[in-house]
């Protein structure tokens, strides 16, 4: 039952995100670009850190 609610909840979030994307894309293209771009910047910075950990787990001591 819990999984079902999570599924429905995530489905609603997805529908809302798509609606927002369509509306923002039409009326506020730069706002939309900011939303997508900011998420991307945050994720890429995060990936950089994870990559750092992976590189150093292999034993590269230099930074």
């Amino acid at each position: 039952m819990g999984k079902y609610f999570t599924f429905v909840g995530l489905g609603l979030v997805l529908a809302l995100a798509l609606l927002l994307a369509v509306v923002a894309g039409d009326y506020g293209p730069w706002y939309f670009a900011w939303m997508v771009g900011t998420v991307m910047i945050v994720l890429i910075a995060g990936c950089g850190a994870v990559l750092f950990d992976a590189q150093h787990e292999k034993g590269e001591g230099e930074i």
Binding site: G37, M40, V42, I44, A45, G46, G48, A49, F52
Partner: peptide, 15 residues
């Protein structure tokens, strides 16, 4: 510092 630098550099290059 190295981790902070890495994250900030990637954050900054796209920004």
């Amino acid at each position: 510092a190295a981790r902070s630098f890495r994250m900030a550099a990637l954050f900054g290059v796209i920004s």
